[in-house]
């Protein structure tokens, strides 16, 4: 890659889209076919959907619903299964960061929502991932009320620990791991949070309780259990490693050796 290519190759592509359409939760869905004759290779995947939607409006049809916000791979809103893969074909890339230059003229692309029991479809490509918020509210935090903190440098944190905590904390909560898992398990998401806080001194006091409460909440939400398929890691756009799962399993086991902690009751995510 040496010559600038940002504005080279404006060759337009003909793309056929096979898109999942579903009017609402618990409604039957179907695959709809749309043809776009002039896709630019510099468009992002979502920009191509924008173009499709503009045309649908012009022809008096309802637009394709899909979640998106930052469009730069950090908010975790976008949630498309593209040709059978959560977030599409590029490794370490969210759907919003996927560019059409990875496709060729004449390609047909299948687009579906993330699928998992705990992620019901709301409309078309949009699903309800509030289960993740409830899992966090069950234990994915350090209980440190505002105002009670010591000086930031009062507790030193070895750089390698801080770096590994950051690796795990990079999770964007997108749910691709659960969508990719044959059991629709949310283990990678849960483990990433547990590992992030377990690697820092601030996370120690609640360490075992956290693992237990989060796994319990995950089960309650109807996610499956982890049977080591590791599809999650392949789909994860942020490179969260399954080592986190091993780490969490240790904390989880430890929590049973200690006195069973009280689990939080009655969350009110509305």
């Amino acid at each position: 890659m040496s010559a600038p290519s940002h504005d080279a190759g404006s060759g337009r592509m003909r793309i056929t889209l096979k898109i999942w359409r579903q009017e609402g939760p618990n409604r039957p869905g179907k695959v709809e076919t749309h043809f776009l004759p002039d896709v630019s290779p510099h468009m992002s995947f979502l920009e191509m959907l924008d173009v499709l939607n503009e045309r649908l409006i012009a022809s008096g049809l309802d637009t394709v619903a899909f979640d998106h916000d930052c469009r730069e791979g950090i908010c975790g809103a976008c949630s498309l299964v593209i040709d059978g893969r959560a977030h599409g074909p590029e490794a370490l890339t969210t759907a919003c960061q996927l560019h059409m230059r990875h496709y060729s003229d004449g390609d047909t692309i299948h687009v579906e929502p993330f699928r998992a029991n705990a992620f019901p479809v709301l409309k078309d490509l949009m699903v309800d991932r509030s289960a993740f918020d409830r899992i966090i509210s069950a234990g994915g935090f350090v209980s440190s009320p505002t105002g009670s903190a010591p000086d930031g440098n009062a507790i030193l944190v070895p750089k390698p620990d801080a770096d590994r905590a950051m690796d795990a904390a990079a999770c964007i909560g997108c749910g691709a791991c659960a969508a990719a898992c044959p059991n629709a398990s949310a283990m990678l998401f849960v483990a990433a949070k547990v590992a992030h806080l377990a690697l820092l001194p601030q996370g120690q006091p609640e360490r075992e309780r956290r693992a237990l409460a989060m796994v319990h909440a995950m089960d309650e939400e109807g996610f499956g259990s982890c049977t080591n398929h590791f599809e999650c890691m392949a789909a994860c756009p942020k490179g969260i490693s399954v080592e986190s799962i091993a780490r969490m399993n240790r904390d989880f086991a430890l929590s049973f050796l200690k006195e069973a902690p009280d689990l939080p009751t009655g969350s009110s995510v509305g």
Binding site: F141, S144, S148, D151, L200
Partner: peptide, 22 residues
């Protein structure tokens, strides 16, 4: 300054020096 303290306490993984300080 208090903001940094509060965020560290909440588990924000700020970049660190080799000595362990922020």
């Amino acid at each position: 300054n208090q903001i940094i303290d509060q965020c560290v306490a909440l588990g924000v993984p700020f970049a660190r020096e080799y000595g362990g300080g922020l």
